[in-house]
C-alpha cells in the first residue's frame, strides 16, 4: 500500500502574546499547539487516503513524523485521533537543531520507512522558514511540488498533478512519485484534493477535520516509534545561530478621524498621499 509521511511540528500558540527577554524569547510558559499548515498536511493525506463510499478501504497508510521532545507530543496524539495510522517521534528539542538537520532527519526516516510521498506544511508559523520540504526533496533527489493548493492523485500513473500558488497565479505541475509536496492554505477547501476513487466533485468539510470521540480512543492504541537524531546519524552543524530576538519597532501612534471628509483632508494635506 502507498505510504505517506506527513511532517508535523508543534509551535507556541500564535494567539498568545510573545514574551521578550533581553535579546530573546521566553518560551517557558507557552502553550504548544500544532502548526496550522501541518494540520492542513495531515488533512490532505487523509483526503488522499479516504474512499468516501467505503470507510474500510484506505488507499494509503499515513505516518506522522515530529521532531520534538518526546514528552510534548499532544500534537501527534491529535493527528492520530484525526485518523493518521501511526507516528514517529524523533526526540530532540527542535529549536536547538539547524533547519538542515531537521531536513536530514525527515529524509532519513522517509528512507527507512520506504515512503512514496512526503507531505509537509509550507511554513512553520513560528520559524517561517518555508524551506524544510524543499530541502528534503533535494536530499532525496525527489521531485517537489511546493505551495500546493490542489492535488490530483493519478494512482495508475503513480504521479500527482499539483496546482501551486506562485507569484503570478496558479501553476499546475505533474510530479512522478516518490515526491515531496508542501501544502498551502487552500488545499483544505472542500474540493481541493482528489484521489481518483472519490467522485471528482466530492466536497469534504471545509478545513481540517476534527477528531471524533472514537478517533481519540483509537489514537491511544496507535503505535508511536521513538528515535533520536543520533539513531539516524544526524547532528546539527551549527550553521544557524540566533544572535538576538527583538520586538519590531512600534509604529508611531495613529489618530482616529471623525468623518470621511476629515480623512481625505488629512490624507491630502498631512500625509500627502492623495
Amino acid at each position: 500500500m502507498t505510504k505517506i509521511l506527513v511532517t508535523v511540528k508543534r509551535i507556541p500558540d500564535p494567539d498568545e502574546n510573545l514574551k521578550f527577554t533581553a535579546g530573546g524569547l521566553d518560551l517557558s510558559s507557552v502553550k504548544w499547539v500544532p502548526n496550522a499548515f501541518d494540520e492542513y498536511a495531515v488533512e490532505t493525506a487523509l483526503r488522499l487516503a479516504d474512499d468516501v463510499s467505503n470507510k474500510k478501504n484506505r488507499l494509503a497508510e499515513i505516518i506522522v513524523l515530529s521532531i520534538c521532545p518526546q514528552k510534548q507530543r499532544q500534537h501527534m496524539t491529535q493527528f492520530l485521533a484525526m485518523g493518521a495510522d501511526r507516528g514517529v517521534i524523533v526526540d530532540a528539542d527542535d529549536s536547538t537543531l539547524d533547519t538542515a538537520a531537521i531536513a536530514k532527519i525527515i529524509a532519513k526516516v522517509a528512507e527507512q520507512e520506504g515512503v512514496d510521498m512526503i507531505i509537509t506544511g509550507k511554513l512553520s508559523q513560528d520559524n517561517e522558514g518555508n524551506q524544510v520540504g524543499q530541502r528534503v526533496a533535494g536530499l532525496l533527489n525527489w521531485p517537489q511540488a511546493c505551495f500546493a493548493a490542489e492535488i490530483d492523485w493519478d494512482r495508475e500513473g503513480n504521479a500527482l498533478a499539483v496546482s501551486r500558488e506562485v507569484d503570478e497565479g496558479v501553476e499546475t505541475k505533474k510530479i512522478p512519485l516518490p515526491g515531496v509536496v508542501s501544502v498551502d492554505l487552500r488545499v483544505v477547501l472542500p474540493t481541493s484534493v482528489r484521489n481518483g476513487v472519490n467522485p471528482a466533485d466530492h466536497a469534504f468539510t471545509d478545513g481540517p477535520r476534527l477528531a471524533s470521540l472514537r478517533g481519540i480512543t483509537m489514537a491511544k492504541r496507535k503505535k508511536v516509534a521513538i528515535k533520536t537524531p543520533a539513531d539516524l546519524g544526524v547532528t546539527s552543524s551549527g550553521g544557524e545561530a540566533t544572535v538576538a530576538v527583538n520586538a519590531p519597532p512600534a509604529r508611531k501612534a495613529g489618530q482616529m478621524v471623525g468623518s470621511i471628509e476629515e480623512l481625505v483632508e488629512k490624507l491630502a494635506t498631512e500625509a500627502k498621499v492623495l
Binding site: 530541502r135 526533496a137 500558488e165 507569484d167
Partner: peptide, 28 residues
Amino acid sequence: ASSTLRDCLPRAAAVLDAPLCAEVIAVK
C-alpha cells in the same frame, strides 16, 4: 524572495549542505 527562489534555493542549499536565511529584511 519570489515564489521561484523560495522553491529552488532551499533545494540547492540542502544538496550543498548549506544554511539558508529566509526573507531577510536587513543586513546587519
